[in-house]
Amino acid sequence: MVDALHLVGGGLVVAGALLTLLGGVGVLRFPDVYTRIHAASLTDTGGATLVLLGLALISGLTLETLKLGLVWVFVMLTTPAAANALANAAFSAGHTPRIGAFQIMKSLAAGEARSDTQRRETSDDDKSSPP
């Protein structure tokens, strides 16, 4: 029984690691910031759920399970919020999505970003970064 739980838990950990790996491939291969955020944040929360669930199965019902639950709660709270903030900041700084089907959104975003920049009179930070 315990061995079976360990096996299932280990399998879940490996599945979570594979999901995270998949997200890593997405972050490397996707064309622009928004798709990369999509890839990273979805797989991070999913991978974290699988890995922590697997570890909880391995540890059984102890204090460590509670701590694993806490880690899960914090990851589930912070990762989506950080991804939201990141995409928000990138969009308001004038980053436009680069995928072909988003041409309408691209022109919209360009207009929005221009008026936004004029209103706040802040400098675009991407000019300071290397290409």
Binding site: V27, V33, R36, I37, A40, A83, L86, A89, A90, A93, H95, D125, D126, S129, P131
Partner: peptide, 8 residues
């Protein structure tokens, strides 16, 4: 290439 990629 952009700083947002680095933050991500």
């Amino acid at each position: 290439p952009s700083q947002y990629d680095r933050m991500l």
